[in-house]
Design a protein around this nucleic acid. Structure first.
Lengths: 339, 339
DNA sequence: AATCTGAACGCAAACGCTTGCGCAACAACG
DNA sequence: CGTTGTTGCGCAAGCGTTTGCGTTCAGATT
């Protein structure tokens, strides 16, 4: 059988309570006894049962992370970084992958994290009901996606500023027919596509360029969607000479579509993305870099602080820096235009 | 406060044991009482405390997944698929990200999964000591990487056959100077690079092509490594006309190096990868496809079966199908050769 | 010398569930 | 009508910790 705390207590000639206090660094144990107990515990290979300890103490030392598709680069990277911080602090990570509607529904109705986690990091945008469910857990909450929400500490970026720098870059290069591939069909309450679009409109207006709805297409934040969207844009009567894709994945899809149409990048069409995907550099994609791993780490750190000192005043909203990374997919428009 | 099983019992006018049996579908409860209890539980929003239930029953309904870098596509995809299967079966997933040596050491010495999980899925190659640590947990183990190991159910692919098909494809196209970018510097006990290299040697021998050590380079299974390796190969006196990269990520690095050298793919140099990375299609990379998500799902399923019927005879080793996917990075050698 | 003080430790009661066992009540049997 | 099974349910003993409180005892204080 596995060794329990009473085994250690017996072997060390003390009571179980003393073992518990000694091993967790609680006061009320003399240094020599503490050392003795530590030695015995190590020799016996004792590890406290988490179930028992969290049942007794109410603390679980576990943090739940809910995410859509962890397979996608963005979420995987955030998760990766968050996990490192959390596990270094002695917390375990319970992962819930809510890609499918069924999984999502199951999670929010059964709420398996109830009484199982000390905090939750959400990488998805909960609708109002789901938000209530999370709040009902009564534990600290954090998110790295979407805008401010009550009860959550959210770490994110300035989507407006990021999109502005991307579009302005195209304008400065001399482009005037600038298309956008967005992700309008995402979940509600997700402000990112809206903010980025607004920045796009603002920059155009600022440059005195009239807005042409035919230059907007929905790419659904996927590679395939980006490819379709670009194809749509190219089918128009006056296709764009430059495109701002709201994510690198959509930008990659756009690049693929352009290649299929035998258009050269950036000679015929410029493309700028958003995210700085790990492969953006490989492809040479000009993009707006955001610290994805940094956001996961920061969110994790904020949760930990909140657990350590529950009533400390913490910022409810943290903005991480962004920057435009110039690579090889943007250039001044060709004098002849595309086609 | 949160509602406990006794609250439900009181509200339903029965004992706690009956509630427990009713809610978990155990026999010994009449249908009407069971329905009554279910209704009351639903109304009160009751969810059993996992800590308490696993303390009492010994079952945790939790499965540990250990992985290096979940940020990388391969691991993220396997994890994603495995999580879906497991959570659909009512299991939670505890994630351990063991990318850094410290995290890895911490995990295997403290072994935080002890008494916390019913099974472990390992996406990394444990060394002998680590293997012992895992075995000492006394729970079913599975892995999707590396070759057969005692005590593990391993689901994988036929690395030899996969690499053979890739190299043979290049030979059939007429190439005779075929390079390889491998990952020799990986962890010990990892047979994949060895198997794939052996296949490379076999096919060359079979085709009567002498082996030239100058055509092999180490890419460490990363994009950057692949780029460096390709650069090395191009620096040789007689560079290859085709390259087999042991992973798509290395192949992408190689493509980048080739672009930097102003060499065209596939006109000047052909490249074939391994994995069928999600972006391989976007890039048009010819590669050996393996069912990555499929392997994660299959491993999860096998673990579940083992938990359901502990002494059923299960296959210790499952081979998943592979296939060569022809895209746009391979072609017959140019009559003039590269440079 | 009598009293007071901490520090160090043990006792025992939770924490919320599971499960073996016992005990009714009732049906079916000879 | 007594006996033997079944079925449905409650009792109570755990599961392995944590923690408030009580006890002991050495040393400091009157």
């Amino acid at each position: 059988m596995t060794v329990s705390i009473t085994d250690v207590a017996r072997a060390a000639g003390v009571s179980a309570s003393t073992v518990s206090r000694a091993l967790r660094g609680r006061p009320g144990v003399s240094d020599e006894v503490r050392a003795q107990i530590a030695a015995v515990a190590a020799e016996l290979g004792y590890t406290a049962s988490r179930s028992a300890s969290s049942l007794a103490s109410g603390r679980t030392y576990t943090i739940g992370v809910v995410a859509p598709y962890i397979g996608r680069w963005f979420f995987g990277t955030v998760l990766d970084a968050a996990e490192q911080i959390l596990s270094a602090a002695g917390y375990d990570v319970l992962l819930y992958n809510l890609g499918s509607p069924e999984a999502r529904k199951r999670f929010f109705t059964k709420l398996p994290v109830r009484k199982r986690v000390d905090a939750v990091l959400s990488l998805l945008i909960p609708d109002p009901e789901e938000t209530d469910a999370l709040l009902s857990l009564g534990v600290p909450l954090a998110t790295t996606v979407g805008g401010a929400r009550d009860g959550f500490v959210v770490v994110g970026i300035d989507d407006r500023a990021g999109a502005e720098s991307a579009v302005r870059h195209l304008v400065n290069l001399g482009h005037r027919r600038i298309g956008m591939i967005s992700g309008a069909s995402g979940p509600l309450h997700w402000t990112t596509p809206i903010d980025r679009r607004q920045a796009y409109l603002d920059v155009l207006a600022d440059a005195g360029i009239p807005h042409d709805p035919a230059l907007e297409a929905d790419g659904g934040y996927t590679v395939e969607g980006g490819e379709q969207a670009m194809t749509e844009l190219l089918a128009g009567s006056r296709p764009p000479t430059a495109v701002f894709a709201q994510s690198d994945e959509m930008a990659m899809g756009a690049l693929r579509a352009l290649r299929r149409h035998r258009l050269r990048v950036p000679d015929d069409v410029s493309v700028v993305g958003f995210d700085d995907h790990e492969l953006a550099e490989v492809i040479g994609l000009t993009t707006v870099a955001q610290p994805v791993a940094g956001q996961g780490a920061e969110a994790a750190r904020l949760l930990l602080r909140r657990l350590d000192e529950p009533d400390a005043e913490l910022p409810g909203h943290v903005q991480m820096p962004i920057r435009l990374v110039l690579r090889e997919t943007t250039a001044p428009p060709s004098p002849r235009g595309p086609q």
